[in-house]
Design a protein around this nucleic acid. Sequence first.
RNA 1: GUGAUCGUAGCUCAGUUCGGUUAGAGCGCCUGGUUGUGGUCCAGGAGGUCGCGGGUUCGAAUCCCGUCGGUCACCCCA
Length: 390
Amino acid sequence: MIEQVKGTQNISNDDSLKYLYIQSLFLNKFGDYGYKYIQTPLLEYKELFDKSIGESSEIVTKQMYELTDKGGRELVLRPEGTSSIVRYHSEFNKDTTNKYSYFGSMFRYENPQKNRYREFNQAGVEIVGLIDEYSDFQIINDSYNFINELIPDTKLKVNTIGSISDREKYVKVLYDYFINNKDKLSQESIEKLENNTLRILDSNNTDDLEIIKSAPKINDFINAKSQKSFSLILNNLNSAEISYEIDESLVRGLDYYNDLTFEFATSNNVVIGGGGRYDNLAEILSLGKFKGVGVAFGVERIMNNISIPENYTKYYLLGTDVKNLTKYSKMLDQHNINYNKPARLSKANSQFKEAKKQNVMYLINTDEDTIKNLITNETEDFSIEVILEH
RNA sequence: GUGAUCGUAGCUCAGUUCGGUUAGAGCGCCUGGUUGUGGUCCAGGAGGUCGCGGGUUCGAAUCCCGUCGGUCACCCCA
């Protein structure tokens, strides 16, 4: 027995319906909003993510699917979408400002569990180029509208992490503080001290929380321009009547963010999407000087938190004679009427049972030349007019 | 990377503790009949390398080791 690759998925049955529902809502909505859909490769040079996500982050150090191709190139299966969009923008649209959307598989080598898979789908949008606080607001506003149509009680958390140099200063002070309290920290947090000091703030260990409570706050290190920018965004959210919560511990997993960071979570605190501003990403990658802001949603995490009504076929074409079946098919096809039919010429009783199982509404019996309403059990002679009246 | 738990028919599972003749059930599927205003019922049938590999044994679904996969949690994150 050949089993599936660990952490990959077969999206089937109810999940396929959810997947397609989310995908089409996403494409329609952001298409209308003016975001251009682009599909970048699943394979990228490893270097792209080493530099962008941050060489000390777990995604880069432990979670990338790396491979060397026959030409000796170091490639990875993409772990996220933003870096590819930035690469694309610099290659084809540098010096312009664009709104992009993408939807597809990402790969991270981690142990799978609920809401976390090795191959998973992200739906994301980005505004790249010359941008301002209105761009930040737009990303939040548009994605807020999108996600609330799927999960109405989604919570929005926002924060500002200041400029990169603000953050460097803050991390130094924070590091000193934690070093002085090292003996009270959990083992995991101590391990993060050297390379990931900021992420200690994310800890949910109860002992850590005590220390974190009185740790220096990033707010005291944020420069005036960043603070002004943040309050501008908050004002915009207020006037759009988008409810949010400021979460000063909101430090996102990717190093390229500055100033605005935000997250969407369900009422039971499953993070289903997040994003922020990345003014230096292009420069870090030596791709130019343009800025960006974006958001990405975990499609599976949305799927795990919605239920959608089932979609039933209306008609079922029953019959045991190919000539009759073909005649009816042709008639229905010509009128653009969709219908289900048996996969093979099984006996009429099996087909009848199949139609009932699929919850179809009308059974067209080509053997008897009748159409039957399976809910009321009324049968009448078949004619195309009967169907056109439905 | 760490830990827990599971893996027997298409599906849900019994059998594994205390190893022993051709590995079972329900549902589903197929065939024939019955019903015929059809979804019922009856009879028969197909379908299993017991996740995979090795070991112990006269003998392994059952015991031991390894491995792959599912689920869940930690870490981390979407």
